[in-house]
C-alpha cells in the first residue's frame, strides 16, 4: 500500500542563533509513503551521517502527538498540511511524488533558534511558572468528591487543558502572540472551582510574563487555532481577555 516518493526538500540550516542560516536543498528518492514526516527526516539524517555530514537537528520525543516536542513549519504551515495534527503524526501520504517541501523552524522572537530546526521554547515554561497552576501543597487536598464539578465544566476545562505546549500557535500567529497557549491554561483553571481562588493573580501574572518574553499581542486573526494540533478554540483567548478585565476590579 505504500508508494515510493521522490522529493525535493529545502531545509533551513542554521548553526546557532548568533550565526545566519539559510536553506539547503536535499533530494530524496524512494521514500515510503507509510513513513511519518520525521521518519523521513531520520532517513535523510542516516544518509547524511553515512556521508560524514552533520545531520539536521530537529526535536521530537513521543512521536505520537502528545509531548509537544516536535514542531516544524512545513510549506508555510506550522505542523504541516494536516489540520489538528502534530508534525510527528504527519505521514508522507500527505505529499505527492515530485513535490518540493520547505521546512523551517518555528519562528518568533520568543523562540530563538538553537540549531537548524530546533528552537528554545522555554519562554512558555516561564510563563506557566508565574501562575499556570493551582497552589495546593501535597497532603492538603479535601476528599476528591467533596467539590462537585459539572460534566460540562469538566469537559470545557479538558478542551482547554489538552494543550501540549508545542508553540505552534506562536509560530503561526502574525504577531507571534502566545495568547492561545496562555488562554488555554487560564481557561482550563478558570473553568474549575479548584482554580477560582487564584483566578485574578494568575491571569495577570501570566500576561505580564508573556509580554516580558517578547510575545506579541493577539489581534484575533485565528491562525493559531487553525494550526493547533489539539484544536484549542480561540474562544479561550476571549475568555482570557474577559478574565483579565475582571481582574482589574
Amino acid at each position: 500500500m505504500s508508494v515510493p516518493l521522490s522529493l525535493t526538500l529545502k531545509i533551513w540550516r542554521q548553526p546557532s542563533s548568533e550565526q545566519p542560516g539559510g536553506f539547503v536543498t536535499y533530494e530524496m528518492k524512494g521514500i515510503s509513503s507509510a513513513l511519518s514526516f520525521l521518519e523521513m527526516l531520520d532517513t535523510l539524517n542516516e544518509q547524511l551521517l553515512a556521508k560524514g555530514e552533520d545531520p539536521i537537528a530537529f526535536e521530537s520525543d513521543c512521536r505520537e502527538g502528545i509531548c509537544g516536542a516536535c514542531g516544524l513549519v512545513i510549506n508555510g504551515v506550522a505542523h504541516g498540511p494536516w489540520p489538528g495534527c502534530t508534525t510527528c503524526q504527519l505521514h508522507m501520504r500527505a505529499f505527492r511524488s515530485g513535490e518540493t517541501i520547505f521546512v523551517e523552524p518555528f519562528r518568533a522572537r520568543g523562540f530563538p533558534v538553537v540549531k537548524d530546526l530546533v528552537v528554545d521554547r522555554s519562554a512558555l515554561d516561564r510563563t506557566v511558572q508565574q501562575g499556570g497552576y493551582v497552589s495546593v501543597n501535597t497532603g492538603s487536598a479535601p476528599p476528591a468528591n467533596a467539590v462537585c464539578v459539572s460534566k460540562q465544566q469538566a469537559e470545557q476545562a479538558f478542551d482547554a487543558a489538552a494543550c501540549i505546549g508545542c508553540g505552534a500557535c506562536v509560530a503561526a500567529c502574525k504577531n507571534a502572540s502566545a495568547m492561545l497557549f496562555v488562554g488555554a491554561k487560564v481557561t482550563h483553571l478558570a473553568s474549575l472551582p479548584q482554580g477560582h481562588p487564584e483566578r485574578k493573580t494568575r491571569v495577570r501574572a501570566m500576561l505580564v510574563q508573556a509580554d516580558k518574553e517578547g510575545f506579541g499581542a493577539c489581534t484575533n486573526t485565528r491562525e493559531c487555532q487553525a494550526v493547533c494540533p489539539k484544536r484549542i478554540d480561540v474562544s479561550v483567548i476571549a475568555r482570557l481577555n474577559g478574565e483579565a478585565l475582571k481582574s482589574i476590579k
Binding site: G139, V147, V149, K151, F158, L192
Partner: peptide, 20 residues
C-alpha cells in the same frame, strides 16, 4: 490521596452528570 490531590490540582477527570 493521590486522586484527592490530583483533583485539587484542577485535573479535569471525567465526571458523570451529577458532577461526581
Amino acid at each position: 490521596p493521590i486522586i484527592d490531590h490530583c483533583v485539587a490540582q484542577g485535573i479535569p477527570f471525567a465526571r458523570d452528570y451529577g458532577g461526581m
